[in-house]
Amino acid sequence: MDSSSQIIEKPSLITSFLAITKARLAISVVFSTLAGYLLGVDTWNANSFLMLLFLAIGGYCMVGASNVFNQVIEKDLDALMDRTKNRPLPSGLISKQNALLLGFVLTAVGLAILFAVNPKTAMFGAISIFLYVSVYTPLKTLTPLSVFVGAFPGAIPYMLGWVAATGHFGIEAGTLFIIQFFWQFPHFWAIGWFLYDDYKKAGFFMLPTGQRDKKTALQVILYTVWMILASIVPVFGFTGKLFLTKVSGAIVLLLGFWMLFYAVKLYKEMDAVAARKLMIVSVSYISLVQIIFVLDKFIR
């Protein structure tokens, strides 16, 4: 068959929806939220399972809306980067108007569902989407401090789950927030390192010094250390109802050293390969830590 006569099938609506809402990212964020809920819930009943479902759907809607608005704003910049040029908007699969409509619908549905959980959950969800879309996204082309700003909405989901379960923001939710807050710096700086050249095409400078240098690598190490310390604080009984046994604390500490090893390796090797490895380890780290926190609560 002549190549010119071949028919290229357009992605389905579901495929396009998953792409524009960044499904993998959204699911990982929802996972954090559900982990926080499991840590906060005291008694299980039919309503608890309903709240989990609400959190999953409402959380996906909110994260999906943030990602949609982000891609609307960065449509022209995404077209410049190899990593993002085939996204639905720059490739023309979805129009800007339809994307905006989808973003507003997801926001409304997400907020309504989270409000049904409790008003504070909806409030933190609204703060998260506002910071991500209105502050973090515009700052990405202006200053490396955008990563610091973006760490705030990025850290909300873990503690959001606790607030959803308890209706209260206290030392427990704050600790979950801090753990995920510090984790984001080595994670996103690792991404910024190995995608440096691609980001540069769109004018994104995500590294703290703007360069792949020793100062950036050193900051990756320092924030990894802060993350480790924050993760083991619940062992010492200073964080209210959020508690971690010594055995689980030791496992979390070992996982932290595992991530620190790759942070140090980046400092020594200063290349994209080491940065990519650190990114992969960081994703595994935060998921495993959240699982350990939940298991520790239910098996101790």
Rank of each mutant, 00 (worst) to 15 (best):
L34V: 15
L34K: 06
A35L: 09
A35I: 03
A35R: 03
A35F: 13
A35H: 04
G36T: 06
G36M: 05
L38I: 02
L38R: 02
L39I: 08
G40R: 10
D42T: 15
W44A: 12
A46P: 00
A46Y: 14
F49R: 07
F49N: 10
L50A: 13
L50V: 14
M51P: 05
M51F: 10
M51Y: 11
L52T: 02
F54E: 14
F54T: 12
L55W: 02
L55Q: 03
A56P: 11
G58A: 11
G58S: 09
G59H: 06
C61F: 11
C61S: 10
M62A: 08
A65D: 12
S66K: 03
V68P: 09
N70G: 01
N70M: 01
Q71P: 02
V72W: 09
V72Y: 07
I73P: 02
K75C: 11
D76N: 15
L77Q: 03
A79S: 13
A79C: 05
L80M: 15
L80R: 15
M81T: 04
D82W: 13
T84W: 05
T84Y: 11
T84R: 11
K85I: 08
K85E: 15
K85G: 10
N86L: 11
R87H: 07
R87G: 09
R87N: 04
L89Q: 07
P90C: 10
S91N: 09
S91Y: 05
L93A: 08
L93Y: 10
K96D: 05
Q97A: 12
A99P: 07
L101N: 12
L102V: 05
G103A: 13
L106V: 01
L106T: 00
L106N: 03
A108P: 04
V109H: 06
L111I: 15
L111R: 04
L111C: 12
L111H: 08
A112Q: 08
I113H: 03
I113F: 04
L114T: 13
L114A: 10
L114D: 09
F115R: 13
A116E: 13
A116T: 15
A116P: 04
V117I: 14
N118V: 11
N118C: 13
P119E: 15
T121P: 05
M123T: 12
F124W: 13
F124T: 00
F124I: 04
G125Q: 04
G125E: 06
A126Q: 06
I127S: 02
I127Y: 07
I127V: 14
S128H: 00
F130E: 04
Y132R: 06
Y136G: 01
Y136R: 00
Y136A: 02
T137Y: 00
K140L: 01
T141F: 00
L142V: 04
T143E: 00
P144L: 06
P144E: 06
L145K: 05
